[in-house]
Amino acid sequence: MAEMIDIVAQELNGLSFKALSTLAGGLVKANTVVVVTNWNGLSPNAVALSRNVPKAELEPEYSAVGGIRRYDVGLPAQRQKIKANQKQLLEQEKKIAEHLTKKGEYDKVKNTKGWEAQLKVLEEELARQKRQFADRQRVMSRMLVRQTMYNRFDKTISSWVEYYSKKFPPAKPLDSNIIKSMAYEESRMGTFGEHLALPPYDWATNEHHFLKARFNIVQAIDSAEEQQLLMMEELAHKEIFLPHGLDKLKKEHKSRGLKRAEFYTWDRGQFVSALEKFFKLRDKKGLSLMGHSKDLHEDYDFWVRTAIRWLFVKYEAVGRDWKEAVRAYNGSGPKAVAYRKRILARTGAKTPLDVSED
């Protein structure tokens, strides 16, 4: 079964990368930008301009967003390992070639078995180095996916933080780095997470539930019913919220605090019916409520927006304190306090954050 990061790797198709050297037979010059048309899974090469280009010579194109730290996974160090490995392979191949020329000398002294034994040692070492080289290239491929995903949502995060800060002015500005840190903590920006589910999605199984779609990178799950009720009221008040009577559901939940199961059974499944329509609703141009040609549950933009909106709710609930809001987003108790500590540890600086050890 493919790992989540290898599924996500497909999304690098169509993204821009900077070439670190001249590639594709001179078609791509060093320090210029090229669009990858096929990431090619775990292959050491991607496709650009219909040519194979070594992934180790690519750097994800990065556009800094004011106030948000870049996350780095240690690409330069991995490139050095790959280059060192290439050099070792060439040296080992030379040793084998040199040893092959000495067969006659061994034959003269009737030591052919000694020559064969030495050749076997040299060839086994070459095979080991080739395996190591292949492993390092696979690691490099995944590191490039991580580096890309870890910094892919900076603009989205900044935009929605600004949007809700204008709509619900906080006493103290929300640092966008908090949201980025939460997305990293919750799902490594969609590359790894306990609750990330792969399609096809449904309402019947826990493993493939719509609310666990792998695009839900800040893991807006624990209070998903309340969150989606809020988002339906905000984005589809006339189209879905009122026609399905969710204004009544909202009042009922406020008065007695409905449990998750009660949301799903409320008024013979009106909440579930509304939510399914909400995720799939399209306008005449075929665009969703977020203005994109994809269902909401498969839209990173929607899930980032939902998480930020929910954090604003928590902010008001805990007395307008962002640190406490972060803790409350995860719940209560020692685990939530530890969660807050990890989130905030990644904020407060402007320099790139090295996450290569994670």
Rank of each mutant, 00 (worst) to 15 (best):
Q92G: 01
L296E: 05
K166S: 14
K103H: 05
A336V: 07
E91Y: 05
G14H: 02
E125H: 03
A224K: 08
R188T: 11
A325R: 00
M140S: 11
R340A: 15
E194L: 11
L20E: 11
A349Y: 03
V145N: 03
H244E: 01
K280H: 14
K167H: 01
Y163C: 03
A338H: 09
K251Y: 05
L287H: 09
E226N: 13
K323E: 15
G26W: 12
V318D: 04
P54I: 11
F278M: 03
Q10K: 15
S158W: 04
G25R: 05
D301F: 00
R268E: 13
P243F: 02
E316H: 10
Y164D: 00
N38S: 13
E125L: 10
F312R: 07
G66T: 14
K248Q: 07
L344F: 12
E316F: 11
Q132M: 09
G333E: 07
L311E: 01
E162A: 15
A56I: 13
A307K: 02
W115P: 01
I221G: 00
N330W: 09
S176M: 01
F302I: 01
N330Y: 02
R128I: 00
R305Y: 07
F271D: 03
E225C: 04
K277S: 08
S158K: 14
T156Q: 10
I82F: 02
A183C: 10
V313K: 12
Y71K: 10
E185N: 03
Y164C: 02
K102Y: 00
T205C: 09
I308E: 00
N151H: 06
D299N: 15
I308H: 10
F215H: 15
G245Y: 02
A197Y: 02
Y62G: 07
S187F: 07
R142M: 06
I179H: 01
T101V: 12
Y106H: 09
A224C: 04
S43Y: 02
Q92Y: 08
P199E: 06
V272M: 11
R131F: 06
P352H: 09
W160S: 05
L289S: 03
V109N: 12
E207T: 09
D358A: 10
A317M: 00
